[in-house]
């Protein structure tokens, strides 16, 4: 098969560029530890009362570490509001009681699908004071556009508060 010389250079350049991209991405996950949503565990969505999600809310684990259990349902998050001091790190365990929802924290690289039957997990560090919305970004019926929660990060009232 005849391949034009210029085209061969083009193909090599493209392959090398894409190869470098791919290597960087894989390194970010498998070497530098950027966490992707991964299987944590299954749960019976019709029986959350008998699980760790029976009483959703925030738990202080000491040393600035928190664990939050959040249940998404048509059309709100439980609890709706969470308050943590600035600098804390929160491990979110989230699931859905009914259909699929989304879990997106404004300005914080937290982006999960919440599927009934699956527990989703993400760890987020809050180092800026302010109010950040948790937005349901997966269509979940007529109330979807109003489904949100709030994370209030309380801190020393420095200048440059985000909101």
């Amino acid at each position: 098969m005849h391949i034009d010389e210029l085209e061969r250079y083009w193909l090599i350049a493209v392959s090398v560029t894409l190869g470098v991209f791919t290597a960087a991405l894989l390194a970010s996950v498998f070497i530098f530890g950027v966490r992707l949503p991964s299987p944590v565990g299954r749960i019976d969505p019709t029986d959350l009362a008998n699980t760790e999600f029976a009483e959703p809310g925030l738990r202080d684990m000491g040393n600035g570490q928190y664990t939050a259990h959040i249940v998404a349902q048509m059309w709100n998050f439980m609890p709706r509001e969470i308050r943590v001091p600035v600098g804390s790190e929160v491990l979110f365990n989230v699931t859905s009681r009914d259909i699929s929802h989304g879990f997106f924290i404004e300005a914080h690289n937290a982006n999960l699908m919440l599927l009934p039957g699956q527990i989703a997990q993400v760890r987020v560090k809050f180092d800026r004071p302010g109010e950040f919305h948790i937005i349901c970004h997966e269509y979940c019926g007529p109330g979807h556009q109003n489904m949100f929660g709030v994370i209030i990060v309380e801190g020393p009232a420095t200048a440059g508060l985000s909101e």
Partner: peptide, 22 residues
């Protein structure tokens, strides 16, 4: 962003996605 698929599968599909760009 799905909770029920492992990071390894996500990695494999990422590599192949870059191949399909060629």
């Amino acid at each position: 962003a799905d909770p029920g698929v492992s990071a390894v599968s996500k990695g494999i599909h990422t590599v192949l996605t870059f191949v399909v760009a060629i």
